[in-house]
């Protein structure tokens, strides 16, 4: 078990993160101090959650480019509701946000499932459609902090056992995803569908429905993050989280989730997101311009995918018995 872990992707990432933290700590000793670490985690929470949602989609050999638009639309809707009915309690807004996200995910899923349209095309389309709808419902105007109720803004910041609710949300999402992925038949079906769709049919798994469910789950997470994003930054407008979908996919790829489907873990996705989050927070600390961040995450993606490919590369068919023994 231990040797297996040492060779695993998660261990490699943990090592990379440790090296980054160690390097930064030489310049700025408090970087890894609990308070700062908690800050970084809180800052990365939304990325972690979205990466988990994206992970289940990628596991089934699909991709969801619409997550950031979904987030922005869900966020705008709850912000609008809040500005019109300030008295509505936050749990109801959470339910609305999650449901809305799931509906949008279901739109993607149904097009992939029933019409068999390639996921990249579907979500490329819904990416622009969702974004456009935000403009229609908001008239292109911003919803600013003063239009939001106090409880609306306070929720993600509320501290519980030393951590803000936003962080707890991420922790909760990680736990829920770990259970879904490891302990439910649907979770295992994600792996089966992505790893070998042909064989999945033989074992009685409905490939299309499984993909549909992955999109619904990813949509639900985006909806939740929509509320959290808008309330955390206390502003909602058309372009929030623009281009964030690529950062989410980057976190997944760095976390060892194979774009070809069937390979990946909750731990990997979380570490991939944390890696990006730590880099982002480390740059200003060590006086490197934050403008380096994009290039660094780009390089990380390329290195990660090259490493993935190497570990996934298929061994040739072993016919010679002698050769079989030596390997």
């Amino acid at each position: 078990m231990i040797t297996q872990f040492i060779k695993s992707r998660e261990a490699l990432l943990l090592l990379a993160i440790a090296i980054v933290i160690a390097l930064v700590s030489t310049r700025f000793p408090d970087f890894a101090a609990p308070a700062n670490a908690a800050n970084i985690f809180n800052d990365t929470s939304i990325l972690i959650m979205l990466a988990l949602g994206q992970m289940v989609v990628i596991l089934t050999r699909c991709i969801d480019l619409s997550v950031a638009s979904n987030l922005a639309l869900s966020g705008m809707v709850v912000a609008l509701i809040n500005s019109i009915v300030p008295g509505l309690p936050v749990p109801i807004l959470l339910i609305i946000a999650i449901s809305l996200g799931m509906i949008m995910g279901a739109c993607n899923g149904i097009l992939v499932w029933k019409l068999d349209i390639p996921p990249i095309v579907v979500t490329l389309g819904t990416l622009t459609i969702f974004r456009g709808i935000i403009f229609l419902i908001s008239n292109g105007e911003w919803i600013n902090a003063h239009e939001m109720s106090a409880s609306f803004k306070a929720f993600p910041r509320f501290e519980l056992l030393g951590l803000p609710v936003l962080s707890w949300m991420a922790v909760l999402t990680v736990i829920v995803f770990a259970i879904i992925v490891i302990r439910t038949p649907l979770g295992r079906a994600f792996y089966a569908v992505g790893g070998n769709p042909h064989a999945a049919v033989y074992t009685g798994i409905d490939v299309g429905f499984t993909r549909f469910m992955a999109f619904v789950i990813a949509g639900g997470v985006s909806g939740l993050c929509g509320y959290l994003w808008v309330s955390r930054y206390a502003v909602a407008y058309v372009d929030i989280a623009g281009g964030f979908e690529l950062e989410v996919i980057a976190a997944c790829v760095i976390g060892g989730i194979s774009i070809a489907g069937g390979i990946g873990s909750v731990g990997g996705a979380v570490l991939g997101a944390l890696f990006l989050g730590i880099i982002k927070n480390a740059l200003p600390v060590i006086n490197i311009s934050p403008f380096w961040q994009l290039a660094i995450s780009g390089s990380a993606i390329i290195i990660a995918v090259a490493v993935n490919a190497r570990s996934e590369s298929k061994k040739g068919r072993v016919i010679l018995k002698k050769a079989e023994q030596t390997t």
Partner: peptide
């Protein structure tokens, strides 16, 4: 059925492969 080409899942564990669909 036990198929000609083993139709199983490389990235799941042995136990999961045995029980996928009826765990």
């Amino acid at each position: 059925a036990i198929h000609q080409e083993t139709v199983l899942f490389d990235d799941l564990t042995v136990a999961e492969n045995i029980f996928i669909g009826h765990a």
